Amino acid sequence: MQLTNTGNSNGTKMALGTIGVYRGKNKETDQPEFDNLPFVAYGAVSEYIKQDTKMMLSGKINTYIRQDGSQYGQRVVQMQVLVAYPIATPDKQSIKEHQSTGLDMDSIDKAVDQINVSDNDLPF
């Protein structure tokens, strides 16, 4: 994600940037493909968007014609961010120990993987 924090002419805080939207894997190369989508966020939402942090952005897609001197102008597609949630931060370490029991999380994950539930175990 590329990000620029700024303000507009009437003092409203803004965040402008570009995000990569996952498109799927290329059938020939099996590599992930992304489309770059410009976004804008206003006010308090703009303060939650941080560079180098994986974010979930939710909002609406706007399209408009920007007059660029050509006969028809240039079509602009832009996401207006209404909600921003960080989903991972670079300085946050993974949890190694369960908070209430003190058990090692790897051993808990392995134990959960060994649990098998069949249709006979379900009450419906």
Rank of each mutant, 00 (worst) to 15 (best):
M1Y: 10
L3Q: 09
T4R: 12
T4D: 03
N5E: 14
N5T: 14
T6V: 11
N8H: 03
S9E: 15
S9C: 02
N10D: 13
N10T: 13
G11C: 11
G11A: 10
T12V: 12
T12W: 04
K13A: 04
K13Y: 02
K13C: 05
M14A: 10
M14W: 02
M14G: 05
A15L: 11
I19P: 11
G20P: 05
G20T: 11
V21G: 04
Y22C: 03
G24T: 07
G24Y: 11
K25S: 10
N26Q: 05
N26I: 04
K27H: 14
T29F: 09
T29I: 00
T29V: 08
D30T: 11
L37H: 00
L37G: 02
V40C: 01
A41E: 04
Y42N: 03
Y42F: 15
A44N: 04
V45E: 08
V45G: 05
V45N: 05
S46M: 01
S46T: 00
S46V: 02
E47S: 14
E47H: 04
E47M: 09
Y48H: 11
I49N: 02
K50I: 10
K50L: 10
Q51G: 09
D52Y: 04
T53N: 05
K54I: 13
K54T: 12
M55C: 06
M55N: 00
M55R: 07
M55A: 03
M56D: 06
S58W: 10
G59L: 07
K60S: 14
N62R: 13
N62I: 05
Y64D: 02
Y64G: 12
S70I: 08
S70Y: 03
Q71K: 14
G73A: 09
G73I: 04
Q74T: 13
R75A: 15
R75M: 12
V76Q: 06
V76W: 11
V77D: 09
Q78F: 06
M79S: 06
V81H: 02
L82C: 02
V83D: 04
V83M: 09
A84V: 09
A84E: 07
P86S: 01
I87D: 00
I87T: 12
I87W: 01
I87N: 01
T89M: 10
T89N: 13
T89I: 08
D91S: 08
D91I: 04
K92H: 07
Q93P: 06
Q93Y: 13
Q93I: 12
Q93D: 14
I95L: 12
I95G: 03
K96T: 14
E97V: 15
E97A: 13
Q99L: 14
T101G: 00
T101A: 06
G102L: 13
L103K: 12
D104R: 01
D104L: 06
D106F: 09
D109H: 13
D113P: 03
Q114R: 15
Q114V: 12
N116R: 15
N116E: 15
N116K: 15
V117S: 05
S118E: 06
S118V: 06
S118W: 12
S118A: 07
D119C: 09
L122C: 02
L122D: 00
P123Y: 00
P123Q: 01
F124Q: 02
